[in-house]
Design a protein around this nucleic acid. Sequence first.
DNA 1: CCTGAATTGTTAGTACGACTAACGTTGGCT
DNA 2: AGCCAACGTTAGTCGTACTAACAATTCAGG
Lengths: 165, 165
Amino acid sequence: MQADHEARTDSAALRFDRGAETPERLKAQLSRLMGLTAAQTQRAAGDALRAVGAHKDHFVVLAALAEFGPASQSALAARAHVYKSDLVAVLNELADGGWIRRAPDPSDKRRNVITVTAAGSRRLAELDAVLAGVNDHVMTPLTPGERTQLFALLTRINAHLADQR
Amino acid sequence: MQADHEARTDSAALRFDRGAETPERLKAQLSRLMGLTAAQTQRAAGDALRAVGAHKDHFVVLAALAEFGPASQSALAARAHVYKSDLVAVLNELADGGWIRRAPDPSDKRRNVITVTAAGSRRLAELDAVLAGVNDHVMTPLTPGERTQLFALLTRINAHLADQR
DNA sequence: CCTGAATTGTTAGTACGACTAACGTTGGCT
DNA sequence: AGCCAACGTTAGTCGTACTAACAATTCAGG
């Protein structure tokens, strides 16, 4: 057996329509199509980030820091929508890479002030480029107009569902 | 505090664009938009199924049985793309509801033959209706033409990504 | 200024889905 | 006969979303 040189798992299990092998009823389920396609996309993004030693939250946290400036961990958790408990590990990893600095806040000894380093800014740019590549790869079969359309349709659905209650 | 009468968690954490609160870089990531929207959709589907005491695999397995006829557990696992290890629990639940029968195969004592009961057919129709309602709810803001388009775009992306290697 | 309540970072743990490994039983093959 | 493959089942890993509890610190009110 020599079957896993680069795909982690099946990769065909995420195919929505396998012709006669796929029950017709499943082919009508948008939730399934969206779920599978999102899983493919996230796997692609996850793999690409893993290849450079990062993962999703690294990008999210660096982006939040870059755009909103230094923050305490709980402010950061709120902004990046990462649980403060999970943030601890993310910050440890980012600090190990030298991409952020975690310093005690002199004005409030409960707080840490998180700051992006110069290397952190470069790292963010790197991860941004990686993800741009993934997005492009995912949307390869679509024309520019179709890409815009897809983005718009998903955005409307997302806003609609988020507005519920 | 009295804030969780029916939403299991945040529900706002799945919003893609929170205006000024959302870092601009995140607003360019299709993988994020797709992931969040798929999560919303799957949460809606999961909640709706849970409300009638079912979950995703119940539907998938019943659909496969209904369209391909009685099968052994491993055949079913292959067709429904459910791991045979997980299928055990699903079949236990379906059997408890009286929706399937699990009988030993007389011609091969290793096998169980799984059959849908009449109640199982009705159950499938019920779950199908529940999911149709969810799909409709999710796509509320879209016109019929847009719904078709979204389906088509996602289908192309899914096929493209599944064809990789 | 003192005491109780709230906040901060952290550790630990739950819930759940996707996925793998191993095992006893049975069957087909030669 | 003997060996390997397939069957159903149990158990366990891994990753991610999410909650609970806790010590340290700060803050507000009497």
